[in-house]
Design a protein around this nucleic acid. Structure first.
Length: 118
RNA sequence: ACAGUGAAUCGGCUUGUCGCUGGUCAUGUAUCAGAGGAAAGUCCGGGCAACACAGGGUAACCCGCUUCCUAACGGGAAGAGGCUCGUGAGAGUCAGAUAGUGUAGAAGAAAACAACCGCCUCAUUCUUGUGAGGUAAGGGUGAGAAGGUGGGGUAAGAGCCUACCAGGUCUGUGGUGACACAGACGCUGUACACUCCGGGUGUUGAAAGUUCGCGUAAACUGGCGUCUGAGGGCGACCCGUUCGAGCCAGAGGGUAGAACGAUUGAGGUGUAGGGUGACUUACAUCCUAGAUAAAUGACAGGCACUGCUCCGCAGUACAGAACCCGGCUUACAGAUUCACUGUCUCU
RNA sequence: UGGGCUAUGGUGUAAUGGUAACACUGCAGAUUCUGGUCCUGCCUUUCCUGGUUCGAGUCCGGGUAGCCCAA
C-alpha cells in the first residue's frame, strides 16, 4: 500500500459516524475559507469527509473542483495527524482559491488537530 | 469583398510525478479501460419492475391540417392552407366540426329577431315640426358593425343585378391525402367556452424490486369488529361481485451492511440496396464508464489556437454519468464544411 | 435521484380573461398647545421572457428563485 494514498477505508461514509461528528460537542477550528471538525475514534485509520454546500456553488463542476483540491491537499499531508480521527472539512466561501493556498490552509488545520491531540 | 440565412460536424493534443474507480491475470508500485453534446432542465414517450386485472355503466384527463416514420410520443420527415416578421435566402406561429347551446366588460342606436342621427315615401300641419312606414349608402363607437371595391338599379337603398376579389357548399378533373383548378349556387360577421366527432390513458417509480446477513417488542395504550360482517380488492365513482378475522390510530424499540437489479443495447461503425426524406433491409465488424457520503483528479512542463501594450503576458466555452433508451427544451469560447441570399467592385 | 408546489406594495393575504383590492408598517399633509387616536394622500414594471386573445395577474411554452415530500 502506498504511503500517500486515499483508499476507500479512509473515507467517512457511515451515517452514524457522521451524526456523531456533527452532534455539536466535537472540537472545531476555522481558517477561512475552511472549517474543520474532528473527533478521536477507535478505528484503525483516520477517515475524511469533505463538504461543499450547494448554496455556495450551484454548479456540480465547481463543487467537484473544490472537493478535489481539498482531498489532494489532505492526501499529501495526512501523516501530520498521528492518532486516528474522523475529520470533516467544510467550505465556507463562494469563491475559488488556488491549490497552493488551500494546501497551506489544510496543513495548518491538520497541525492544529495534532497539537490538540497531544 | 462585406453582411447574412439554413443544414451539418468538431469542441484541444501531449509528457512526467503522486493518486482514485472498475475489468483481467501469472496477485504486483502488473496491465487495460475510465464523463457529455448537451451527462443539464425533468417537459413528453417507451423499456424494465412491483402491485392490480370476471363484467357493465358514468365521469375525468390528454392529443387534434394531411400523408408517412417509429417500440412509442405532445417527437421527426415530406407536403398543404392562413397570419406575422424580413429587401431576400428564410424564420415564427395557428388549426378537427357551415350541426347545436351559451358568453362577449367599457364605449356605441345596435354585439346578431339591429334604425340614434341621417336619407326617402305617405299622411297631417302653425310647412324650424309631428305621426306612420321604407332604408344598412353616409356619420360616430369599437378589436369586431351584417363579405370588400367599382358600375347599374332605386323614392331612398339593399347580392336587388353585374364585373373583379376573399370565403363557403355542390358537381367535375388532378392528387394516397390536406388541397388545387374549372363550372354552378348570392350561400357569407368574429372570438372563446361548452358540446360533438375521431384516437388514446390501470397505479407507482430503481429510495421500483429480489436474495443473504445483523438486530428488536409476536410486547404496551386507545377505538371498531368476529356471520347482527369491522375492514379490504376490482387504484375516480356507481352497480354488481368477491375475500373476510382482524383492522385503524398513538407512543416507543430495532436495522441502515453486502450481492443482484446495473450496463450487449429498439447499440455503435462501415459497405451495399430501398425511400424525395424521417427511416429501413442485408452483410461485415467492434465491445466503448459502471460508481454508491458516490471514481474519472491535483501539480509541473511542451505544442496548438485566440487576444494584447507581441523575444513577453493573459486566455481557451457551456458544463460532471447515478437503471437504460428515443425525443424536446435550455446553456455554449472558438473552429470547420456545404448550399443559398443581399449589397458593392472587377472581368 | 425521483415526485410535487409557490412567486402580487416594505409585510401578510385577495382578485369570473375586462380600472390590480384589503389590513398593517413607512412617508407627507390636516387636526392638536404637543404627542397619540381619527381623517386625506403617496409608495406595485403582478419573478423574468415569448405566445394565444380585441384585451393576460389569470390561459399556454421556456427560464430564474424559493419551498415541501420519499431513507
Amino acid at each position: 500500500m502506498t504511503i500517500n494514498g486515499l483508499p476507500r477505508e479512509e473515507r467517512l461514509k457511515s451515517l452514524k459516524a457522521i451524526e456523531a461528528l456533527f452532534s455539536g460537542t466535537n472540537r472545531s477550528a476555522t481558517d477561512f475559507p475552511l472549517k474543520v471538525i474532528w473527533r478521536n475514534t477507535s478505528e484503525p485509520t483516520s477517515r475524511l469527509l469533505v463538504s461543499v454546500s450547494k448554496r455556495q456553488h450551484r454548479r456540480a463542476v465547481a463543487r467537484n473542483r473544490i472537493k478535489r483540491q481539498i482531498r489532494e491537499a489532505y492526501r499529501l499531508h495526512k501523516d501530520s495527524v498521528t492518532t486516528p480521527c474522523d475529520i470533516a472539512f467544510l467550505w465556507l466561501s463562494k469563491d475559488f482559491f488556488p491549490t497552493t493556498v488551500i494546501t497551506r490552509k489544510v496543513t495548518s488545520l491538520l497541525n492544529k488537530i495534532s497539537c490538540a491531540d497531544s
